[in-house]
Design a binder for these strands. Structure first.
Lengths: 346, 346
DNA sequence: CTGTTAGCGCTTTCAT
DNA sequence: ATGAAAGCGCTAACAG
């Protein structure tokens, strides 16, 4: 049990100075001579001293821990975002507790309780598809714990967000399909309690209007976020009284099911039906390498949200001005080209 | 700043008893009357008391934190495993620090340093593809911090592992292809410093031998874990002087690139070439819904590894007997059937 | 069964 | 610029 048990007192004793001076030196305080600082740092290095964060944090009554709540870790957008969160957090001296709501409001509620019990300094969250009221976030507000929504946000006032421009994404996707000559474009949408799906729909509608394409209500197919729903969507699509030549899917999970079903039915993508979907799941791009996708910068979302949150933590309860940062999604056109392996941090 | 600052002393003062009794009651010690226990618990509840883990852990000089090192969070196998780790860890009162090596030994080394500095109680790790020596794990050994390998393990002595039976998986996959009538089965392999790829290869070879299929060295195509390598693999495959009718891919990333390329070349899967791959990435199953895959129970791996690690932590430095748990992979045959949406925890 | 006492290792006044 | 002293909130001897 040779636990590295060197404390500031050990250093102090050896150097015949007080531990408070050692503490100051180790924190690079300007109330210590550079000379003693050097001496202390050298000795600390020599002994392999490592600060005990538990003690330090207890004293400062800060945990240097952030809570992150996502619907599901294994979704690509969220795992990418988490990667970004972790990187930024560690760099700024924070640890991260990651929790999955599994799309259930009940679990989301419990998680907030857990994070409170863990006394996190701040929370990042992307709400579940069941989340329609925000009572469970009151505890955070009461305790003055800052929180930042990312991607799946809520339209409650006075809170910070890091989002992608879903309206623009919807517009771009639809515009792209129109540019391909599509006349009857189906829109797969998701739960309308989530802002992101509302906004993507708005983008779709705008594009139709601007390009003077007649809007038909039955071309909007809304479903939950499940593959099996996508199959149903595809069936509905095939029963429509128009020849569908395009799909803009805002619902990446459903799109996967739908595309599989369509292919089974012998429908060729994109020859028979052009498709633009979100690449939250890299899957959608791979079912059909030629697929044009809206790529969301998950890693960047995570980094940005974390930076914002930590800056709010540092500001303290002073102003706590809420801020919304909107990132641009990218429309990536693929013409049977191979998807490049993204070796970067994603 | 209305921070919930109720301590055991507040409870003690109100109840006119000592804080140590409160502490004992809150820890459900059997050295407190049930009656006083009830009284204390009730009051704690009433005041909304929440234990300060920082103080508690400092006193016990334990962090109740586990470190997890994975090559890349966004790989499906790892994000599933992490989900399992988190669930089990939280249930047992542990927090988790997640780190990505990004397949780089250098980063892996640094991460171990960070975890040491964070004084984690134990470490779970799946090594990077560059990892060939294990010096960087010495620090853990010296400080008597238990660690458990999962999935991507190392053949160093006296350590614990939670693995899937890669040999069996390789055997089953190959046997399946042979059963389909394949005569010339290419094997996509990965970096041979990783045990998992060695073992899958062994399984492949065994199956060939048992079913009396001639082994040809040039049917084994080894590559890094990148999609672009898969494209190269596919090209090599097409240049072989045999008609290839089967692929067993142990390298899921490369398989993605390869399958895309093959499809571009007009080769039909599985009609022209049958494929069995690992579904670390659900992608591979979706490029071709009919694809037969080896499914790895990532969530279960994570849970099992965590349970094992925590039990080792509890044992302390007493025995620290190393243990290896081998889980069975599942060969999942799909005949153009839709992949079911797995709504469970994965 | 309960109270007393003494820290865990660090930071932070307050002196000097 | 440094030291002395107090204490963050909790747990764990040791008494009784």
């Amino acid at each position: 049990m040779e636990n590295n048990k060197i404390t500031i007192h050990d250093i102090a004793r050896i150097l015949k100075i007080d531990s408070s001076t050692v503490s100051r030196a180790l924190n690079d305080s300007d109330r210590v001579t550079q000379k003693t600082k050097d001496k202390i740092l050298a000795k600390a290095q020599e002994l392999g001293y490592q600060r005990n964060h538990l003690a330090s944090n207890l004293r400062k009554s800060k945990t240097y821990t952030l809570g992150v709540i996502v619907p599901r870790i294994s979704r690509h957008l969220f795992s990418s975002a988490i990667a970004g969160v972790e990187e930024t957090a560690y760099k700024m001296g924070y640890n991260v507790i990651i929790c999955q709501s599994l799309e259930q409001l009940e679990r989301e509620r419990n998680i907030v309780g857990t994070l409170l019990a863990n006394r996190v300094d701040g929370v990042l969250l992307s709400v579940s598809m069941e989340t329609i009221n925000y009572d469970h976030l009151q505890g955070l507000k009461q305790r003055n714990i800052p929180f930042v929504f990312f991607d799946r946000h809520c339209n409650i006032s006075d809170n910070s967000n890091v989002l992608i421009d879903d309206y623009q994404a919807g517009f771009d996707a639809t515009e792209h399909l129109i540019g391909q000559g599509c006349k009857h474009i189906v829109h797969f949408s998701g739960p309308q309690n989530l802002e992101i799906y509302k906004n993507r729909l708005k983008g779709y509608l705008s594009a139709l209007q601007i390009y003077d394409i007649e809007f038909r209500k039955d071309l909007i197919i809304e479903s939950r976020l499940m593959e099996i729903d996508g199959v149903e969507n595809a069936k509905l699509l095939l029963e429509l009284p128009y020849k569908i030549d395009g799909i803009f899917s805002a619902n990446d999970i459903a799109a996967i099911g739908a595309m599989q079903y369509l292919k089974q039915q012998g429908i060729r993508i994109p020859e028979d039906i052009a498709v633009v979907g979100f690449s939250n799941e890299p899957i959608s791009a791979l079912i059909e390498p030629s697929l044009t996708t809206i790529d969301q910068p998950g890693f960047k979302i995570g980094k940005t949200a974390t930076t914002l949150l930590i800056s709010q933590i540092h500001e303290g309860a002073t102003k706590m001005k809420s801020e919304t940062i909107i990132l641009k999604p990218n429309l990536i056109e693929r013409k049977s080209s191979l998807r490049k392996f993204e070796s970067g941090n994603y």
